[in-house]
Simulated scan of single mutants.
Amino acid sequence: MFRPSPRIASGLLAAAAAVFATLSVQAPAYADDVYLCTGPNGVPEYRNSGNVKGCKKLTLPDVVTVPGTRSPRSAGAAPAPAQNNAGGGFPRVDNATQKARDGERRQVLEAELADEERKLQALKAEYNNGQPERQGNERNYQKYLDRTAQLKGDIERSQANVDSIRRELGNLKD
């Protein structure tokens, strides 16, 4: 195995550090010039160098940045006092209003459940235990198989929806 002398090793180390320092100088995050070039198929291309035939330099306006404004709260103003707020800053709702909302939610969920169950029954009837009736446009057997697979997936999604709605109804407070 080759081992350089300490003097050569320190010289190599210094050269490597100089190369690394030169490469690590950060370039700006934007290109100064933008060129519009015509590609091989006539498609316009934007480049940061115009060293290809058919490129022309674009004159673009400078980027303008607008500093944000500070809100009164972030500027050091005292926060407004909480009015009828429990922890977390959420307004409190009295029990009668909450019971009315829960009742409305229950009615909506029960209506959705009834609709989804009707849909599920219709899909199961059409699926006919994996042997749906062939339609006139299904001369090709693959179309029939595709529709059968689609029906099976629809049944699984509808059953998952029914289960989810029932779970939501079970989570409601009486």
Rank of each mutant, 00 (worst) to 15 (best):
A18Y: 06
T69K: 06
P81V: 10
D174T: 06
Q135N: 10
A111V: 00
F20M: 09
Y141G: 03
I8V: 15
G54L: 10
V25E: 03
T97N: 12
P40G: 12
C55A: 15
A78V: 07
P28D: 06
L13N: 00
A75L: 04
T148K: 15
S49F: 05
A17N: 04
A160N: 14
K53W: 03
G50H: 04
A111C: 05
Y30Q: 02
V63H: 09
R167T: 15
A114I: 08
P81G: 05
P6G: 09
P132Q: 08
E126W: 06
L145I: 12
K124S: 11
V19M: 10
E168F: 12
Q26C: 02
A75T: 03
N48E: 14
A31E: 06
A100E: 15
L169K: 11
V93A: 08
L36Q: 03
Y35A: 00
E117Y: 01
R106S: 08
L58M: 13
C37V: 09
G39F: 07
G54I: 14
D62N: 12
Q26L: 05
A9K: 14
P67T: 04
S10T: 15
D32Q: 08
G89H: 07
A29K: 03
A16H: 02
Q26T: 02
G88M: 08
A75K: 01
D146K: 13
R167G: 05
E116K: 07
R105Y: 03
G54H: 08
A16G: 04
E117F: 00
P67K: 03
M1C: 10
Q83Y: 13
N137I: 04
N85Q: 14
Q83V: 15
R157H: 09
N48V: 03
Y141C: 07
N41W: 01
L123S: 09
G11I: 05
V162A: 00
N51I: 11
P67E: 08
V34A: 01
E112K: 15
